[in-house]
Design a binder for these strands. Structure first.
Length: 478
RNA sequence: CGAGGUGUAGCGCAGUUGGUAGCGCGCUUGGUUUGGGACCAAGAUGCCGGGGGUUCGAGUCCUCUCACCUCGACCA
């Protein structure tokens, strides 16, 4: 089919080999490149620009909900890391250690932060004394290091960029409210900004964060039917406070332990964008996170007046969107492919014929739909089209997720779905760890979450047949 | 940490029974081109991942080592 024909051969087809497709896209869109250290990547300007847009919008939403940014050191003394038992155990296998300063061995080795709970706690114990000091709503943007055995660009790297919010509250209820508030910030951000629909829910005990009392998550479904944990929010109860001695004098003159939360999202979100929206021609960016929303490609740019018109349009359109002119001396076809690989949502072609007719050709990245628009209407039409694209990408992703969400009442059914049409599987669960373990051993799938929106698929646990307590989303995950 | 794979020009790769390094793309210069990856001409680019060995001679054989990729077990 001429219409279905691939324009770009440099990218492996998704259906042929999804993992290779992902690697090709990440490289061809020039989001990152490998570095000389295992599992670490160089985030290239285009990839970093996406991260900056994510940061900017999230940071705005954090501030809007009353949070302040701080910066903690990247080193954690070993003794500090060890104060909360579950927490150390969870992270011990993947921490990197600093043992020397110059030539001298350190008296106490320093851990390169895999997450900063212990640092925040150590600080909070000093600054929290009275109920009047609460709540503390801190966040930090930083990188963390986890010595991973297997790494993949953006999805799992040894060092990654993220944001970690850490808050302290006077009561459990308040901490729980904060935990859910931030989960909601994440879910609305993903849906509105990244055009990625998410399932909100709680992690099972097996899957929860080391040291947390409860972990909440947003789970999204990738194009290949695998799930991606896209953000988490934890309620620590007073567990860390007890381990670190974070106490305050309450209104009733009683000394009490404080309640805490933490929550984070990372550059992994970039991986989610790629795997939710991308296609065989490469990256597809929702306009809200596109560093370039509109690329102007002049055609026959050597012809008098063409480039001038392109620059003029850029000048005008820069007031309503992020726009660039590709005035390199590549062939137009080459530019089309290049900007499609990079996922630019909208392309504007302008050549002598257009100038004559006082119009331009707009081409949508998501479906290559061509629109002929009068030059006079651009400032009005372009933002409208971009917002349509944003909406359309969300709807497409939602439709895909719904198409790939199944229900199962037996393990055989689950296994069949996982092998034939991988996706989310809604199934009942009795609450026993043993059943989770069994599912994982047998079909490499995990409990993604106990969704807030419960449904009753059946009365019995999909695994052991005992009375069911919850409906779970199951799936194979990244 | 297990299983596999790969390291040769910026990128992708070839390199035979061991004989002193090549192709495509990209890059530079000039010209012609330009509505879906143009063409011609002239150039530039190498610690053959690293150490040790065998040999008159190693990209090639042996050995140790390092790194990266993919797939699994563990984790954002």
């Amino acid at each position: 089919m001429a219409k279905e024909k691939k324009f770009v051969e440099a990218i492996t087809s998704m259906n042929e080999d999804f993992a290779q497709w992902y690697t090709d896209v990440v490289r061809k869109a020039d989001l990152m490149t490998y570095s000389s250290v295992k599992g670490c990547m160089i985030i290239r300007p285009y990839g970093y620009a996406i991260w900056e847009l994510i940061q900017k919008e999230l940071d705005r939403r954090f501030k809007e909900t009353g949070h302040e940014n701080v910066y903690m050191p990247m080193f954690i003394p070993e003794s500090l890391l060890q104060k909360e038992k579950d927490h150390v155990q969870g992270f011990a296998p993947e921490v990197a250690w600093v043992t020397h300063g110059g030539e001298n061995e350190l008296a106490e080795r320093l851990c390169v932060r895999p997450t900063s709970e212990t640092l925040f706690c150590d600080h909070y114990k000093d600054i929290v004394q009275s109920y009047r000091d609460l709540p503390k709503l801190y966040n930090q943007w930083c990188s963390v290091v986890r010595w991973e055995k297997t790494t993949r660009p953006f999805l799992r790297s040894s060092e990654f960029l993220w944001q970690e919010g850490h808050t302290v509250h006077a009561t459990y209820e308040e901490a729980q409210e904060e935990t859910i508030r931030m989960l909601n910030v994440y879910s609305s951000f993903c849906e509105e900004f990244l055009a990625i629909p998410v399932v909100k829910g709680q992690k099972t005990d097996k899957e929860k964060f080391a040291g947390a009392q409860a972990t909440f998550t947003i789970e999204s479904l990738m194009h290949d039917g695998k799930a991606l944990q896209s953000g988490t929010s934890h309620n620590f109860g007073d567990g860390f406070a007890r381990a670190f001695g974070i106490q305050f004098l309450d209104r009733d003159n009683q000394l009490k332990y404080a309640y805490q939360t933490s929550w984070g999202v990372s550059t992994r979100l970039i991986g989610a964008i790629i795997m939710v929206h991308g296609d065989d021609s490469g990256l597809v960016l929702p306009p809200n996170v596109a560093p370039v929303q509109l690329i102007i490609v002049p055609v026959q740019q050597h012809v008098e007046g063409v480039l001038d018109k392109a620059y003029e349009l850029k000048e005008r359109l820069s007031k309503v969107c992020r726009v660039k002119v590709d005035d390199s001396d590549k062939m137009p076809g080459w530019k089309f492919s290049e900007h499609e690989m990079r996922g630019v949502p909208l392309r504007l072609e302008v050549g002598p014929k257009d100038i004559e007719k006082n119009q331009v050709v707009l081409v949508k990245r998501e479906n290559r739909e061509k629109l002929f628009v009068s030059m006079d209407e651009l400032e009005e039409k372009v933002p409208q089209i971009l917002s349509d694209i944003q909406k359309s990408l969300y709807e497409k992703a939602l439709a895909h997720r719904e198409e790939r969400t199944f229900t199962a009442t037996t393990l055989d059914e689950m296994e069949k779905i996982l092998n034939e049409t991988p996706g989310f599987i809604k199934a009942m669960w009795c609450g026993d760890r043993a059943c989770e373990d069994l599912v994982k051993d047998r079909m490499a799938a995990t409990a993604r979450c106990i969704p807030f929106e419960q449904e009753k698929i059946s009365d019995k646990c999909v695994c052991c047949g005992k009375e069911a307590k919850h409906m779970l989303y199951w799936g194979r995950a990244y």
